[in-house]
């Protein structure tokens, strides 16, 4: 009896120590901020274009700003927001035209490439004076995954399917095996996200099979591509009484019905937030949404010209 009691005591102490060690590991691996910095320099700047002639009625020519509750237009961007509620799902579509690719920007929490540094989508949006923003791919929660932001190459190790927005305005999606990071850098990658999955095939048709644990009904964020200079963003509310969320199959069908040629799923769940003119526009699964590493945003023309890259 005494021996049994001693054994129970030993194993209890072992389990407590296990818990302590796991917490210490998680602290160093996951929680404490670790600045990584830019190890790889800039992507090759190639194929930059001005699409003001291509979309002449989409931008103001005198630098003025036209805006209301669902619309914004200045000399560099044109954004129309629509809200949809159907089949128990509420979602928001932002139809975005940009005059040049540098208008479609990304921002990192704390302005550093690091793990463990996070902020809310709304805070990041306000700090960058964004007209419109969505949450990104939350690169900081992972140790791997391609990260190219505003033409700067931060991480080259692949993790999932990849989406690249090039300086020439084209957006391409890649499987894990078909993606070559050096080729993307040489081809002029302006942004690259590593989350996924890819939602449309090379013909713009919805992919009908997803082998992932996140395929069910969830809040979601996705980016779609029509042609250089013309993109869309979709935010889906979920895990709430007014909106159940979308499956990946539904999300893919939605982008196909919108007429996109390429579409890509970004970090969803509690991360999924869309902001509009300094306020949260979507209805996140938790108030304010989860603190994340990065956002994709459109800044007013005065912010987006000439400062970067």
């Amino acid at each position: 009896m005494k021996r049994t009691g001693r054994l129970v005591l030993y194993f209890t102490v072992d389990l407590i120590l296990l818990g302590i060690f796991l917490c210490v590991f998680a602290l160093f691996h996951h929680v404490l901020p670790r600045r990584i910095g830019n190890l790889y320099g800039s992507s090759v700047t190639t194929g930059e274009a001005d699409w003001s002639a291509k979309f002449p009625d989409k931008f103001t020519s005198d630098g003025s700003v036209v805006k209301n509750d669902n619309f914004y237009m200045d000399s560099h961007s044109n954004i129309t927001l629509t809200t949809h509620a159907e089949n128990g799902v509420t979602y928001y579509v932002a139809d975005v035209y940009v005059r040049d690719i540098t208008t479609l920007r990304t921002a990192m929490a704390g302005d550093v490439f690091a793990t463990g540094v996070t902020d809310t989508t709304l805070n990041l949006s306000r700090k960058n004076n964004a007209v419109f923003s969505v949450s990104g791919d939350y690169f900081g929660v992972r140790q791997r995954g391609i990260v190219i932001r505003n033409g700067e190459v931060f991480r080259k190790t692949k993790a999932h399917q990849i989406c690249v927005l090039y300086y020439d305005g084209t957006m391409e999606t890649y499987s894990y095996t078909s993606f070559d990071v050096e080729q993307a850098i040489a081809g002029g990658a302006w942004q690259a996200w590593d989350f996924g999955p890819v939602l449309l095939d090379e013909n713009g048709k919805a992919i009908t099979e997803f082998n992932t644990g996140i395929a069910g009904e969830n809040p979601r964020i996705g980016i779609g591509y029509y042609e250089p200079g013309h993109y869309c963003f979709v935010a889906v509310d979920g895990r709430q009484s007014h909106s159940r969320g979308m499956t990946l199959l539904e999300m893919a069908s939605l982008f196909e019905s919108l007429g996109c040629r390429r579409a890509y799923n970004l970090d969803g769940g509690q991360s999924a937030v869309m902001t509009w003119q300094g306020e949260i526009f979507s209805s996140p699964a938790v108030p304010g949404g989860r603190k994340i590493s990065d956002i994709i945003f459109i800044a007013p023309a005065t912010n987006s010209q000439g400062d970067d890259p």
């Binding site: 590991f25 160093f28 691996h29 996951h30 929660v141 992972r142 140790q143 791997r144 995954g145 993790a159 999932h160 644990g213």
Partner: peptide
Amino acid sequence: FNESMAFLNNTI
């Protein structure tokens, strides 16, 4: 479940 968080593939 989540390979990309690299719980196995890290220095520690």
